[in-house]
């Protein structure tokens, strides 16, 4: 399936809900959304990837790009993902050490608040 994007505010965090496939074709849409959110002053982002069916290095690049942008404003970008097929690519590329990866949106928010 194609890529479906949604977002909402929870506490002081903007939650981005991603559904479908993130690849070289669809990743630009996610990149534009992340850039737009940051430009509008949302510097604490959580990307919920529980409904992502496919992620490649292009998608990883977009997430890293988003992380760079929020960090420029002392912000955070955390991920919610429990799917082994998606987590595998984070492990292969070593990006599990770069992103905070959580089991739920609430956990991502709570852990950031506890820092």
């Amino acid at each position: 399936m194609d890529l479906k994007l949604d977002h909402y505010t929870k506490d002081d965090t903007e939650i981005v809900v991603v559904e479908g496939e993130i690849d070289v074709y669809t990743a630009p849409r996610l990149r534009e959304l992340l850039i737009d959110l940051v430009n509008k002053g949302n510097f604490h982002l959580v990307v919920n990837m529980e409904k992502v069916e496919f992620l490649d290095s292009t998608g990883l690049g977009v997430l890293v790009g988003g992380l760079k942008r929020v960090r420029a404003h002392d912000g955070t970008l955390d991920l919610v993902c429990t799917q082994e097929r998606i987590l595998k690519i984070f492990r292969i590329t070593g990006l599990t050490k770069v992103f905070g990866i959580h089991e739920s949106v609430q956990e991502a928010i709570d852990k950031r608040a506890a820092k």
């Binding site: 070289v24 290095s57 292009t58 690049g61 890293v64 992380l67 760079k68 292969i92 590329t93």
Partner: peptide, 13 residues
């Protein structure tokens, strides 16, 4: 590359 990742990452994958 796209937004922060080297194109070599694809080959590494």
């Amino acid at each position: 590359g796209v937004s922060g990742l080297s194109p070599d990452v694809g080959l590494a994958v």
